[in-house]
């Protein structure tokens, strides 16, 4: 049953998401062919145009990402709580299965979205000039970023980015679903309720993150350079911040998932 539910959720999501992501990749290809590849990085005069192109592309990319989240939210709301809910909730499946199927399908697409975003960014930025410059000046570049103390093989970076995207995708999807389900409690304004819940949950999450990070002394970007070798400290700082964020995301996702499941199971009351 779960497989079938996931199949139809993916099918429904893919209808628009494939189109907008193909568009994203085409846009990335166009930007690279028509802009980034044409500038000679060694001569600096192209810099302003390049920066503008990057900003525009970043806007487009975040638009695609936002649209992906919105479409996932719409599918969840429409399929479970609009008229379509009358069919969804009378299929021979439990509410747990519905939530699980939608979480898996939504996470899958948001993960794909983030991976494609990274791929397209890389594609736009990493022109042959840039790649050449980087490999010629790798040491200096890493030193500039204070990252020299880390063992940064490309495979490790990619693996970490994938893992981070996956966790981020899952926790975002769960947060969206939780907001919609809590929004259902606002009898006459479920969508407004969902938006308010989303803002509420985000705020609470941000406050807790800040509190936890500062408890570990990691919140402030100011750190004592004199303490140890500067490079190692900066690298450690970044890594621990990311680690704690990941743990916090996972914790928030688990708690929100349990709350959502409880709310869905306890009371449905479709109007």
């Amino acid at each position: 049953m779960l497989k079938k539910l996931i199949k139809y959720d993916l099918k429904s999501l893919s209808r628009f998401l494939i189109i907008i992501h193909v568009f994203l990749l085409l846009a990335a290809a166009a930007v690279r062919v028509f802009f980034t590849e044409r500038f000679n990085l060694v001569k600096i005069e192209g810099g302003a145009y390049l920066a503008l192109t990057f900003i525009l592309f970043a806007l487009l990319a975040s638009g695609v990402s936002f649209a992906t989240e919105i479409l996932i939210a719409i599918r969840f709301y429409k399929n479970l709580f609009s008229n379509e809910g009358y069919l969804t909730h009378t299929l021979p499946a439990t509410r747990k299965q519905h939530l699980a199927a939608k979480t898996i399908a939504g996470t899958f697409w948001l993960f794909i979205d983030q991976v494609l975003l990274l791929v397209s960014l890389f594609f736009v930025i990493a022109t042959s000039d840039v790649v050449r410059l980087y490999s010629e000046n790798k040491e200096a570049f890493l030193a500039e970023l204070d990252l020299i103390g880390l063992d940064l093989s490309s495979a490790k970076i990619i693996l970490f980015l994938l893992l981070f995207s996956l966790i981020n995708a899952a926790s975002s999807v769960i947060m969206i679903y939780a907001s919609i389900v809590i929004g259902q409690r606002f009898q006459s304004h479920p969508i407004l309720g969902a938006v308010i819940s989303y803002l509420g949950i985000s705020t609470v999450f941000a406050v807790i993150s800040a509190a936890v990070l500062s408890a570990f002394g990691l919140f402030s970007m100011v750190f004592d350079e004199s303490e140890t070798a500067a490079g190692t400290l900066a690298a450690n700082h970044v890594v621990s911040t990311l680690n704690i964020s990941i743990i916090l995301s996972i914790a928030a996702a688990v708690i929100l998932y349990i709350i959502t499941q409880g709310l869905m199971k306890r009371k449905l009351d479709l109007a």
Binding site: H89, T90, P92, A93, R266, L268, D269
Partner: peptide, 27 residues
């Protein structure tokens, strides 16, 4: 709607083929 598990009863029971609305009743 109560028969179809779209509402939850305030009190009392609805039984379909002897059991409460759920996966089996939806079949």
């Amino acid at each position: 709607k109560l028969i179809n598990d779209l509402l939850t009863p305030t009190c009392g029971n609805v039984l379909i083929d002897g059991s409460r609305p759920g996966v089996e009743s939806k079949k």
